[in-house]
């Protein structure tokens, strides 16, 4: 499945903004990304959110992702 990342992370993915990972949930997306692109690890460790079909998930490892899901990696979100 495809995962979109934000622009400044492309430095660590050979310039690619859309990555291919094998994953059934949020956790597997993160693990897959970190394994394929170790340069993403510091950011993943600092915290990321995931937008799944337009909805933002801040954590939730087991949030299910399907092959046709739109998955977008986002920075960890904070609010007031």
């Amino acid at each position: 499945m495809k995962v979109k990342i934000w622009g400044s992370l492309r430095r660590f993915t050979d310039g690619r903004g859309e990555l291919e990972v094998e994953a059934k949930n949020f956790k597997q997306v993160l693990d897959g990304l970190a394994e394929q692109y170790p340069g993403l690890k510091p950011q993943i460790e600092r915290g990321v959110s995931l937008a799944l079909d337009g909805r933002i998930y801040r954590e939730s490892w087991f949030a299910e992702v399907r092959p046709d899901s739109e998955v977008v990696l986002m920075p960890y979100m904070t609010g007031g």
Binding site: W6, S8, L9, G39, P42, Q43
Partner: peptide, 21 residues
């Protein structure tokens, strides 16, 4: 300073991000 910051800035610049399409 995070790994995201390009060289040439003061050490005060700690992170960089980019979004869009």
């Amino acid at each position: 300073v995070h790994e995201t910051v390009a060289p040439g800035f003061s050490e005060n610049v700690t992170s960089y991000c980019e979004f869009g399409h």
